[in-house]
Design a protein around this nucleic acid. Structure first.
Lengths: 259, 259
DNA sequence: CATAACGCCTCACGTAACTGGAGGTGCAAG
DNA sequence: CTTGCACCTCCAGTTACGTGAGGCGTTATG
């Protein structure tokens, strides 16, 4: 057994504690773990009891404390309820980080899956999707404040497969837009495209929720534009709006013919 | 609708993107998002198309990329399999972080629970426990290489309750040591204490695993000392060892009397 | 015995992604 | 005329070290 009075050099001490010489120098400099000095050589000398102190430092670092806080904590002799409070705050911070990491993790998962299925992707489309995933929480919050909980539930509480399906459909849609862009808005394929979009949107929102959507104001619709970044150019958007308008007039016309 | 050619000042742009003016200055400085300048005032001028670029930057930051990497990624026009590979690496890094956070989370949870149940705790004891939790993975690895998988399983694959129980027992044990310290090693309560310790240890290890424990070498036992930091002083350790030795001789004596 | 190789020392700069402050300009309102 | 606002630039500080230069004293080797 080692005798408890033996001393260590920085190198030995670093190896023991699995930290680095530089780290020990640093702790010495900032006064977190002061070493004694060999009078003649000026070398740092650590005593075996310093091991415990260093272990405490490492433990507290492990718990997420910064060195300054650690110094303060170690100066206090009692370790009780005051620490619990700090620990609980640490706990909450960790949970927040975990939630964020989880979000990023699934976002990357969805992105990778998309690229694998679809091959090379247009960068605008990809970034638009990533941006949507990233701000999903924000959008949910926003809708929660303005529409019915049922709609929010329906739109966001989807399974991973449903979300993947929505991603695919979106990609498909952008490809069709790129393919048909330039055609007149009354071109049958263009009309089919926008009709399909409206159907899908209706299906996604659900008929029973259309009422709460229609309560959204003009300014609301404007600000939704900023949140959901679109991969389309201004001309593409204008063209699509025209096609939509044409579709609406056609449908209205048919209805007027029926009775 | 905003016309697509309107321009923004830094302040407006910061508000739009929910970043700060300083951040935009910074991105301009490092060339990540260069702004044009108003010739007369020298003020930064952002165009609406810069919004997309900034959104992409924010998205990539969200995915965990560093600004330097982002600049490089955005310079490339194709976004395909090269990105997937990077994303997968990101994914793994995130998973590693998640595992680490999970470990810290449960460690703090156990600590808080202990302080709540036991009130004020001796700092040495507390740090000893935290240190043990922190290096649990390391210890598991160490034992895995040297003993049987069954033993490792038994020692580490415990439920949260079992671990909490072990923590409590350990605290209880340190309290008893403090209380009885100074008594002669053949004092009945001291003997009961060490006998209890041995019983608990045997129960924890399991009779069928004693064989693989005994294969550990002397040096192995030394290095285990460094990993499991003890909250006891050198004298306390010596005293406990003596008491253990006394217990062993007694038991050997009894066995010799039996037959 | 000279030299090389260690291990230690100090000093000082680099890191990532900002944040904050000091000091200055131009413009509009009170 | 002053106040306030929004902008500008330049400088410094943040965290917890990593890295490298240049130097000293001790030990191993040719």
């Amino acid at each position: 057994m080692d005798n408890p009075n033996r001393t260590y050099t920085v190198g030995e001490f670093a190896a023991l504690s699995k930290s680095s010489v530089r780290t020990l120098h640093y702790y010495d400099d900032i006064g977190l773990l002061r070493a004694q000095r060999d009078a003649s050589s000026g070398h740092r000398v650590y005593r075996s009891q310093d091991i415990f102190k260093l272990q405490q430092i490492i433990s507290l670092k492990f718990l997420g404390y910064r060195l300054e806080e650690i110094e303060e904590l170690m100066a206090r002799s009692t370790v009780g309820t005051s620490l619990t409070e700090g620990l609980r705050r640490q706990q909450e911070a960790i949970e927040a980080k975990q939630r964020q990491l989880e979000q990023v993790h699934t976002a990357i998962g969805r992105t990778v899956q998309l690229i694998e299925q679809q091959g090379e992707l247009d960068r605008d489309v990809l970034f638009s999707l990533i941006h949507t995933m990233q701000s999903e929480e924000e959008q949910r919050q926003w809708l929660q404040e303005r529409t019915s909980p049922e709609l929010v539930d329906r739109l966001f509480n989807q399974s991973a497969e449903e979300k993947a399906e929505a991603d695919r459909e979106f990609i498909e849609f952008t490809r069709e837009v790129r393919r048909l862009k330039g055609n007149p808005v009354d071109h049958p394929e263009v009309q089919a495209l926008v009709a399909g979009l409206m159907d899908k949107t209706m299906a996604r929102v659900g008929e029973e929720n259309m009422a709460s959507v229609s309560t959204l104001s003009e300014t609301d619709l404007d600000s939704i534009q900023f949140m959901t970044s679109s991969p389309f150019t201004a001309e593409e958007e204008a063209w699509m709006n025209e096609a939509m308008a044409y579709l609406m007039t056609q449908q209205l016309g048919e209805e007027n013919l029926k009775p």
